[in-house]
Design a protein around this nucleic acid. Sequence first.
DNA 1: AGGAGCGTCCCACGGAGTGGGACAGCCGAG
DNA 2: CTCGGCTGTCCCACTCCGTGGGACGCTCCT
Lengths: 253, 253
Amino acid sequence: MYRLDTYGMRSAQTAATISVLDRYLAILDAVKESERSTSITELATRTNMPKSTVSRLAAGLVDQRFLVRNADGTVGLGLRVFELGARAGLPRRLMTAAAPVMRELWEATGDRVGIWVHHGAEMVSLAAVAGRLPMLPTRAGMRSPALTTASGKAFLAFCADRTVVDRLSAELVPDAASGFRHELDLVRASNVATDAGVAYPGIVAVASPVFSADRTVIGAVSLAGPADSMNAQHAAPLVRAAGLSMSRRLSAA
Amino acid sequence: MYRLDTYGMRSAQTAATISVLDRYLAILDAVKESERSTSITELATRTNMPKSTVSRLAAGLVDQRFLVRNADGTVGLGLRVFELGARAGLPRRLMTAAAPVMRELWEATGDRVGIWVHHGAEMVSLAAVAGRLPMLPTRAGMRSPALTTASGKAFLAFCADRTVVDRLSAELVPDAASGFRHELDLVRASNVATDAGVAYPGIVAVASPVFSADRTVIGAVSLAGPADSMNAQHAAPLVRAAGLSMSRRLSAA
DNA sequence: AGGAGCGTCCCACGGAGTGGGACAGCCGAG
DNA sequence: CTCGGCTGTCCCACTCCGTGGGACGCTCCT
């Protein structure tokens, strides 16, 4: 394993040697990705591994209850991943700090409230409170593109790591990239980012960054509602206040 | 690897060959178990592995963001375990079915409400409400002994798999075991189990089973409060109703 | 400087993981 | 009933990846 393959390997292929861990996690991811429970054969195709290997590895994961085996032979995510996930430090701290604030925001607006953290090219939802009106499936563990969503922009605007922003905006054509930079400037000035139906048509979202004690962004709080009933201008101060409040509570603890 | 060691291995030791997966998961568990973030050396002692091995394996887990590396070199659980955990099927379905009911129960009583599923000799908490936000686990992933807690007894009383009950009650001295069986009979008759300070001193808990569509128990809902301010007799009907309501919602979806 | 602690890296060794293929069970079609 | 196609599992020779003692570099104390 290991990042550098000391001997140059010719030919395309995947190469770069795959460790056992990669295989196990590929299986877990494949299971996660599929909405319902998954058959071994399906996993084999999705992960590009021999069926026999998947069978063996999956059996190991089942033994450890990272997967559960259903009566029909398919597998789903097991209890153990839940136990682990529920203990992940950063999400927990953010969530406990955010919970009461999210609720206040929800009571004040009735719209969908969510908290997000950044990962790669996406934002990962930690928790969401459903709004009263039309619902896109928003739930914990869900991902949304960082570049286009309000929460993503709120995060990126304050992201200290320039390389992250550069890498993401590299996918844009030059003038879109400069427009994007400009937008981030505005976000920095106002502490709120907005998305008016770009990421999800008909839905307006407003988001504000959340900072940890050392003043680095760790996520964003967002408010989203139908374009016709929600007013971004009106919501902005509320969301900004929520972001600030979460940051304060996070530092306090 | 594999369960049966075909050749008898003499001497004590651990033996029984340990697979890579076991090692990885031992590390994850060790990290989970410790409240705060953990050093590599500490993990090495806790898991009984050479430091060098732990370092390498942990690095792999960090690469995959199953662990996060803090500035001081310690590690904690990463975002990825959270993402996985948030998608585990059974907990999710139970939680979404349970959330509104838990909230009602909380509003009616003000006491601590939790839902639990069974695993081995313990009950695992899926979610606990102290605040008003549904779906925000206060202390999810926590474990309690199945034998002594209200939720454990509520589950065991209806557990179709006799071997589970037998195996657990095997640890009791004979007359305690028969007393336990008798108590389970009462639970079956009333649909509620009670624990008055045995598992946790000064705390009274009442629990009721939750059934899936096929009428098998999958967990329990519990209500817990301080012994002096909570009345088990009074709470019982509410908890029983909550259990029924959850079961109904679970079958409906 | 010296020492004690940490985490990482190196690399010869060997056992653990690999996966093609045989196999058994379960359907629905012929 | 028998066939073919579909599952998931098991076997086992081959080999490659994980192993871990020990060297190393680092940061803190004393």
